[in-house]
Design a protein around this nucleic acid. Structure first.
Length: 565
RNA sequence: UGACCCGUGGUGUAAUUGGCAACACAACUGAUUUUGGUUCAGUAGAGUCCAAGUUCGAGCCUUGGCGGGUCAACCA
């Protein structure tokens, strides 16, 4: 009883400072007790693990308070945005396990309303058309420590402004020739309040509106209004928008019909050790073909992680574990890796595989004889059942599992040693056969028929249990092994130009001659398996029967090194 | 020499809103184990950036320092 309650409590999403603020707003009766969030990606790339944090936060928060969460594409810059990205983003959000139902929006849905709103600002004398070019405007803006100076076009009449803005809309001006600016305060200590540009001429086709528009609103001008029109109550974004908040609020203030106020709340974006997350850099990796695409398993994108073998549950658990604060820190990847291991350890089927085969002949096992042995699919979950594994005279074991001259703490096979073949028999190594080059090519062993299933009736113990496959029955397969893409612990410290120098050359390896149990061939894409001492793997959905080995390798290698000291 | 934000073990988050700092990851030790996995038991590690102040009592409040971050795109 008490235990049940404890477990329930553990499942409840951890409170964070945003939840506390919302509870407070609710207590004060704000927004008619509504909680409505949104996830607003710009469709200019694939979503990555950092976005997953935001998705879990926004959708999770809505869920927690019985509210709603919209998906809105912030598509106000047609030069960078593509439909491919829109599609992938929708796939990824769904895959993570969240649903916007019928609340799919685009900032481009509001182009008309945004235009009308800009006209209203002009009529109110709160916006003006500036004829100066980007460089001049930038210079007049001043610096963070020095106030700006006013544009000579700042005091045009509303009539003149309206005429010019209309002509901007009609395509009479070229890019860069004219912009619409909000008239706020050139002396403000906040750079964003120094007459920010709210509309610019951009003669690029938009992925949804085509060439209907040649002027596009800027982020600051579009975001708050979009929030308002969608009924968003809590507009959660990352820390770098903190200084934009006064402008966000200013825009809302101009909405005279405003019957409620969306509120911007900022949190720290995710920084992960050994992980490059900048969209610009990821795009570069894709464009320069350092990886095979946005969903390459080496990428920190959600689709990359998915192909890498990560489960949605594990990513959601990770997001919950790291919490939400305004502290700009660096989270250790091991926490992410722990989250998958935790989930996969419960859900992955165990199967035997040999990545680097070494032939073993059981000399006292009759030639031509075969048998099927029982193997459990998951020792921690009996409901996952059993399978039959074929056994015969000639087997492969992992080359790493044998050492001719074993060091002190090596427990596995060596000359004269006895080990267990998992689910099969005890075997003892009697003879090592080498080729001309002195390489070990075969091991001759004897088995103990009495130890069938893996236990000896005399109670004899062995120190190691090995994976194996029957050569005749095993399926030969190409296996791809993945490791961390980058070698720097703090990728943020690396200069933009140099980041590729820190790519890990070992991050991707193809192992051509691997062997797995026949059982694997029955698997479906995204079924997860676990190999002894190699970690989890899953079938790659995009290349037929190839396998991906998933990331525990490094850890286990380290473990062995430690024991070997 | 501006504005805004942040500062708790190695890392990330907590601390009943002022009551002697907890949890997870990582590390280490030991036990169990038909995966050197898992599981279990345990150890170590911060006195909360610093300094004053208020208070019986401060990680939480005040002031002043120090340190870090963000902002000067017709990007989001």
């Amino acid at each position: 009883m008490a235990d049940n309650k404890m477990q329930e409590n553990e499942k409840v999403v951890k409170n964070n400072f945003i939840h506390l603020q919302i509870e407070n707003d609710l207590k004060e009766g704000k927004n008619n007790q509504r909680v409505h969030t949104r996830f607003p990606p710009e469709p200019n790339g694939y979503l990555h693990i950092g976005h997953a944090k935001s998705i879990c936060l926004n959708f999770g928060t809505a869920e927690k308070f019985g509210g709603k969460c919209n998906l809105r594409f912030d598509d106000t810059n047609p030069s960078k945005e593509e439909t491919e990205y829109v599609d992938s983003i929708m796939d990824d959000v769904h895959w993570l396990g969240f649903d916007w139902e019928d609340r799919l929006f685009y900032a481009s849905d509001y182009f008309e309303k945004l235009y009308d709103f800009a006209v209203k600002l002009i009529n109110d004398g709160k916006a003006y058309v500036d004829d100066q070019d980007a460089e001049v405007i930038s210079q007049q803006k001043g610096t963070p420590t020095r106030p700006g100076i006013e544009s000579p076009f700042r005091n045009r009449t509303p009539e003149e402004n309206l005429d010019l803005f209309t002509r901007m809309k009609n395509g009479e001006f070229n890019e860069g020739e004219k912009v619409l600016r909000a008239k706020i305060d050139m002396a403000s200590p906040n750079m964003h309040m120094r007459d920010p540009i709210i509309y610019r001429v951009l003669k690029a086709p938009h992925h949804r509106t085509g060439d209907k528009w040649v002027i596009y609103p800027m982020y600051d001008f579009a975001h708050g209004q979009s929030d308002y029109w969608e009924g968003i109550t809590h507009s959660v974004c990352t820390l770098e928008f903190e200084v934009h908040r006064p402008l966000y609020d200013w825009c809302i203030d101009q909405l005279q019909e405003a019957d409620y106020r969306p509120r911007q709340i900022e949190f720290a974006r995710l920084n992960l050790s050994y992980t490059v997350m900048s969209k610009r850099k990821l795009l570069e990796l894709v464009q320069d073909k350092h990886v095979k695409g946005w969903d390459d398993p080496r990428m920190p994108t959600i689709s990359g992680l998915r192909r890498r073998g990560y489960t949605p549950e594990s990513i959601r658990n990770f997001a919950d574990r790291i919490g939400v604060t305004k502290v700009d820190g660096m989270i250790d990847v091991t926490l992410l890796e722990h989250s998958v291991r935790e989930h996969l350890n419960k859900s992955a089927q165990r199967v035997m595989g040999v990545l680097n085969p070494l032939k073993v002949v059981i000399t006292n096992y009759p030639e031509g004889q075969e048998e099927e042995l029982d193997a459990v699919n998951n020792p921690e979950d009996e409901s996952m059942g059993k399978r039959k594994v074929p056994f015969s005279r000639e087997l492969y074991i992992e080359r790493e599992d044998f050492m001719e001259d074993p060091p002190r703490k090596f427990f596995r096979l060596g000359p004269g040693r006895e080990v267990r073949l998992r689910y099969a028999y005890f075997i003892t190594c009697n003879k090592v056969i080498k080729n001309d080059k002195g390489e070990i090519v075969e091991l001759q062993c004897t088995y103990d028929p009495a130890s069938k299933g893996g236990n000896s009736p005399d109670g004899r113990k062995v120190k190691a249990t090995l994976h194996w496959v029957s050569i005749k029955h095993a399926i030969k397969s190409e296996v791809r092994l993945y490791d961390r893409l980058f070698t720097v612990e703090d990728p943020l410290s690396v200069k933009d130009k140099d980041f590729k120098e820190f790519m890990n050359p070992e991050a991707y390896k193809v192992l051509p001659n691997c062997y797995v149990e026949p059982f694997v061939s029955q698997a479906k894409p995204f079924d997860h398996f676990q190999f002894e001492r190699l970690g989890y793997f899953n079938l790659d959905p995009d290349s037929g029967s190839d396998n991906l080995i998933f990331n525990r390798t490094v850890q286990l290698r380290d473990t062995w090194a430690k024991h070997n000291k």
